[in-house]
Design a protein around this nucleic acid. Sequence first.
DNA 1: GTAGCTGAATTGGAAAAACCAAGCTAGGGT
DNA 2: ACCCTAGCTTGGTTTTTCCAATTCAGCTAC
Lengths: 157, 157
Amino acid sequence: MTDSSCQVVRTLDVIGEKWSLLIIRNALRGQTKYSEFRESLGAPTDILTSRLAKLVESGVLEKRAYREPGDRERASYHLTERGQALRVVIAAMMQWGNEYNPAPQGAASLLVDTDGATVELAYVGSSGAVLDRGEVLIAPGPAASTQWAPIGAIARG
Amino acid sequence: MTDSSCQVVRTLDVIGEKWSLLIIRNALRGQTKYSEFRESLGAPTDILTSRLAKLVESGVLEKRAYREPGDRERASYHLTERGQALRVVIAAMMQWGNEYNPAPQGAASLLVDTDGATVELAYVGSSGAVLDRGEVLIAPGPAASTQWAPIGAIARG
DNA sequence: GTAGCTGAATTGGAAAAACCAAGCTAGGGT
DNA sequence: ACCCTAGCTTGGTTTTTCCAATTCAGCTAC
């Protein structure tokens, strides 16, 4: 897009197109079939085909063959480890949407552990301690194209 | 887009259009001026104008007036608390890009605390303990339009 | 005041992406 | 041999993005 040395840009190259991230969200909900994605998302068939192919190509989904008894062989799409790891992006968006853009009827999805207890995304320092949001910033790394001044302060009206 | 009861969709409504997230990334790097965004991103001017306006409208950016000595008054754009909170989404994408889509020259951005020590995004349970990725799943919440079976297993070749 | 400069915004038209409906296809059933 | 269906492809429209050129507002210089 602009600078492929930036992780955010490289990630957007994988999930930034329309419908890509929602396909992954639904895959995280257990969907695997073209027909499931199609019906639940309502995305146009041609772009669904194209997105599934691209996600397979970029190693987020894996195409497998499956056959229901008394039916012909079809393709199903399963998250790879790379794909599963994108859960952190979905979770971040869930958390932000929940907190700063809530819907009256409540959350559609929750982040839980294997016992069903609520889980949150948090910043964790090298010591293992959970940090407050205000204590974290994004700083230029070794491959930064231009230097910039990291900031922490928020707008004060 | 599809189902606005979903937090992910509502978040995409705010940051899902082309350039929106990169504007926020650069705002997190301290940029505030139209000219700074324009030059660093290379986005078309009309789109940039439109995106800045939309981000202001959705409460992510705040428009302020500033005046450099001997120059006319101009507008600057500052992240609100809502906007700053989107750092978690950027951080998630940074982390994923770094781990699963690394660039040879290394990371362009790092997540650090106020002392410059490395910070990571992690899942934290209600007890405050950091959980492994494999122990976390996304489950239907109160506003789920359709029920689904949460999954944790990854594709095994 | 008027001319000129500069950063931001607007406009018109080309290019690309998304959308939609209709049609095609392969492998099953009858 | 024929029909049915899930997945894919195709043609044409609409929407979004892109690009270049222009306009506009407020400043400085004359």
